[in-house]
Write a protein that binds this DNA or RNA. Structure first.
Lengths: 146, 146
DNA sequence: TACAATTATTTATCGCACGATTTACACCAA
DNA sequence: TTGGTGTAAATCGTGCGATAAATAATTGTA
């Protein structure tokens, strides 16, 4: 036991980093089957929730910049899951809409969350609480970022 | 309110993903000043804890493959922070050792953790508990990964 | 000696992420 | 109508991380 603050075990950031990693590896085989990467999956989830969002709207929910989203969305378009069309009302905006294939993918994706839940070996209640705490942390970090 | 499991808000994974993201953005300006990326920083932390580890040893601690570490370590070597030398005892292994510059960097890096702690707006006790819970989650996920 | 296991590197591929800049459009005010 | 300001998205450039698969070198063992 030392009080050296530069010790890996003491790092909340490493806990986050490595847990996120583990999550990714767990998702990977399932997402491969859907032909999605993890960030792409998140975009699809937001679209399944609400179709026809703008690039900026999606970015706001996922905390991603347009310079990240634009190429990602083009890949989703190339894969046939979405359409990208300029908004009629405001031609600065681009609307992202699910294709039939994109909508159909939701059914297949429905199998994923139960698998993840299962792998956590925790109850939904425990996870809900943990999730809330992690989000509280995220909000503090965002607020205090330069 | 729906019970649709494919809702972004219900995803523990998204909480992890976005919190990790926020953490990265918080770290970035500080790590830029040290000339390190975040995974490189983690490697340096493990070396500050214990110098002269093997590639595999570092990978085990950080949950990274050698195919990820080798190029990363080469960058650290090019930056002048470490040396890579074949082990005399077992020439399959490569030992990673801090240079003077690499050791010196620890002093500068000491300023980082307090900044992070501060930005979390939580007490050390709260963070310790949260960290433990996240690690428990990580362990369950790793165990159940394909 | 032959075979298996370990360790790290290499190769190829890919996508994410960021910063800075640019383009196009919208809106408001002079 | 023009000009300024702000916003939305795309673009460009750059770099890193991550994985899978194949290779090479070494070590240990049957």
């Amino acid at each position: 036991m030392t009080d050296d603050p530069l010790k890996l075990d003491t790092f909340i950031c490493f806990a986050l980093y490595s847990a996120n990693h583990a999550m990714n590896r767990l998702y990977k085989p399932m997402l491969d089957a859907l032909n999605l990467t993890y960030p792409q999956y998140l975009v699809m989830v937001t679209l399944w929730e609400e179709d026809g969002q703008t690039v900026g709207g999606i970015g706001e929910k996922l905390f991603l910049e347009s310079s990240t989203l634009t190429p990602l969305l083009k890949r989703l378009e190339a894969a046939g899951f979405i359409h990208r069309t300029r908004s009629k009302e405001d031609e600065r905006q681009v609307l992202i809409q699910l294709t039939g294939e994109g909508k159909a993918l939701k059914k297949k994706a429905a199998a994923v969350p139960p698998c993840i839940l299962d792998a956590t070996e925790q109850t939904a209640e425990e996870l809900t609480r943990l999730k809330a705490e992690i989000i509280t942390l995220r909000e503090a970090l965002s607020k205090n970022a330069a």
